[in-house]
Design a protein around this nucleic acid. Structure first.
Lengths: 181, 181
DNA sequence: TGCGAACCGGAGGCACCCCTCCACTAATGT
DNA sequence: ACATTAGTGGAGGGGTGCCTCCGGTTCGCA
C-alpha cells in the first residue's frame, strides 16, 4: 500500500495530526464516509484549516485512517493460514465482520469507485482470497462461488441492522452454510 | 393501513398532487429516504410551497408514495398462495427483491423506527409470514429460522451492490439455499 | 533570547436544504 | 361573466457543509 501521508515535523503539528486522525476514525465509524469534515475538525479541537492542510482531500484523510486497518486484515489472514481450510476462512470472516461493525468504510470500500478504494479492495482480496481458494480446493466450498461473491454476501449481511448480535450471527450462519459444498 | 392523505379538490391542485407523487417516487428511488424535498418539488415542476401544503411532513409524502407499493406485496402474496410452499415463498421474495431494487425505502422501512415504518413493516409481515410458515411446516425451511431472519437476510443482500444482476441472483441463491432444511 | 519559518484557525464566499409566509392567480359555481 | 376562495410558488431566514485564504501565533534552532 505504502500510502505516504506526509507527517508534519513540528511537535504541535504532529499533535494536531494525531488528533485529527483519531477524530476522523471516530467520525467515520459513526457516520460512514460521508461524515462532515468540519465535525472531524471540531472533534479534534482544531481549526478546519488545519484539517485541510494535513489532508487536502477527503480521500487523503480517509486513506490515512483506513489503510492501517485494512492491513490488519492481512495479518489475521496470515495468522489463520495453518488452520483447517473452512475454519481458517470463517475465522477470517469473523474478523472481517467484527471489523465492519465499527469500520463501515471497510464495506463501503467494496462498492465505491476510486483509486484508493480500489487499492483497499485489492489488499483485502490478497488477504482473503487464498483462504477461500484453499477451502474451495478442499471441496468445502461450492465450486460455483467466487471470493467476490462471498465478500459481497458477508458485507451485505453485515451492513444491515438486526434485532441483536445473536440474530446477525444466526443469519450469517444460514447464509454461509449455503456456500458449503 | 388506510392512510388518508387528503387529496385536493380542484383540478389543477390534483394535477400537482399527482406530479409530486410521481416526482417523489423517482427521487426516493434514486436517493433513498433522504432525498431533498426541494428536488422533489423541482422535478414536479411545482413550487416548494405546494409540496409542503400537500405533504406537511416528509413522512406524509413518504407514506403517500410507499403505502401503495407495500400493498402490492400483499397482493403478490395472495397470488402465489396456491403454489407449492417453497416455490410460493421464493416467488414472493423475488417480487420483494425486484421491488427493493428500485424502492429502496421498502428496505429502509425494515430498520427505521417510526409510526409509519412500523405500519409498513407490519403489512409486509402479514403478507409474507404465512408463506414462510407454510414452507417451514412442510419441512422445506430450517426450523430454527424466523421470517424476520429471512427478510433481513434478503434485504441485506439486496441493498448491497454487485458486479451485475447475475451475481446478485447467484449470491441470493447461495444464501437462500442455506435456509433450506 | 530572539527571529524566521512553520503552523494555526476561523472568517467568508458559495452551495444546498429546511420550512414558513403571504401577495398573487386562476378554477368554479352561479 | 365574475366574484369567491382554493390553490400557487418563491423569497427569505435559519442551518449545515465545503473549501480557501491569510493575519496572527508558536516552535525550535542558533
Amino acid at each position: 500500500m505504502a500510502v505516504a501521508v506526509r507527517r508534519p515535523q513540528r511537535a504541535d503539528a504532529r499533535r494536531n495530526f494525531e488528533a485529527l486522525l483519531a477524530a476522523a476514525r471516530e467520525a467515520f465509524a459513526e457516520n460512514g464516509t460521508e461524515a462532515s469534515l468540519e465535525d472531524v475538525a471540531r472533534r479534534a479541537g482544531v481549526g478546519i484549516g488545519t484539517l485541510y492542510r494535513n489532508f487536502p482531500t477527503r480521500q487523503d484523510l480517509f486513506e490515512a485512517v483506513y489503510v492501517e486497518e485494512i492491513d490488519q486484515l492481512s495479518q489475521v489472514a496470515a495468522a489463520v493460514a495453518d488452520r483447517p481450510p473452512w475454519e481458517a476462512l470463517t475465522t477470517w470472516l469473523e474478523q472481517f465482520v467484527s471489523y465492519a461493525k465499527t469500520k463501515r468504510a471497510v464495506i463501503e470500500a467494496l462498492n465505491r469507485e476510486s483509486e484508493m478504494f480500489r487499492s483497499c479492495r485489492a489488499t483485502m482480496y490478497e488477504a482473503g482470497e487464498p483462504l477461500f481458494q484453499r477451502a474451495q480446493a478442499a471441496g468445502e466450498v461450492r465450486a460455483d462461488a467466487s471470493f467476490d461473491d462471498l465478500l459481497r454476501l458477508v458485507s451485505g449481511l453485515t451492513s444491515g441492522t438486526y434485532v441483536d448480535e445473536e440474530q446477525r450471527d444466526r443469519v450469517l450462519g444460514f447464509a454461509l452454510s449455503g456456500l458449503k459444498a
